[in-house]
Write a protein that binds this DNA or RNA. Structure first.
Lengths: 105, 105
DNA sequence: CCTTGATATGTAGCGAGACTACATATAGCC
DNA sequence: GGCTATATGTAGTCTCGCTACATATCAAGG
């Protein structure tokens, strides 16, 4: 699955990934590829703007780090981000139920 | 849930409804409200443009009918629409699996 | 008769989300 | 030197679903 199938769940996926520990954008992409069983392969043009959006919203905090000459922007989930994640999860479960009842369980 | 939680599943929901039998827009809204257990209440400004889009794509066919002075545009799903519905359902199942593995089953 | 609410369809304008394609830069390996 | 992986980001675009509005018929109640 490429990213055009995630339909509004991108923020929830990123926040869920960051809940396991802080990470930089490239690592988040790799982590999602792994945890999804190689099914998700998000383009940078999708993830980096999403991280900036999440930071603007106060759900994540980013800081610049250095790793052998390579600059990295490492993001950590905030308290507000945890609340947003809980809401995202609840919304997802609600959608799942609606889809199940309409598509047939 | 209002419609801002359906995230790209609108077409699939409408096609699934029409698979049970042809219907006009207002009836589709009512049917989705019912089958979802009153959880979905889609505004007309969401459903009618979606139906026109689906018709343009060849997934549904509309015809004008008369019901006691009230004009109705009744839509039926096409063969292509059934294929699109199958694809939409498969995409949904794939997303569901990805979400399950990332959020934790 | 008139008003209100349900039935019924639609448009206009807007904002958000995710895309593709591109641009930039470093590190490691051959 | 050149290729690949690592790493971040921008520009421009397209689709989707929203709110708010416009229109029209019909049924029920006052």
């Amino acid at each position: 699955m490429d990213a055009d199938g995630i339909h509004g769940q991108l923020d929830t996926l990123i926040l869920a990934t960051l809940k396991r520990g802080e990470a930089h954008g490239y690592a988040i992409i790799a982590a999602l590829r792994e945890t999804s069983g190689e099914q998700l392969d998000l383009p940078s043009g999708t993830v980096y703007p999403a991280l900036r959006r999440l930071e603007r919203s106060g759900y994540v905090e980013g800081k610049w780090t250095q790793a052998g000459g390579r600059r990295r922007r490492v993001y950590a989930i905030t308290a507000e981000g945890l609340i947003a994640l809980a809401k995202g999860r609840a919304d997802w479960l609600a959608l799942r139920e609606v889809m199940a009842s309409v598509l047939g369980a």
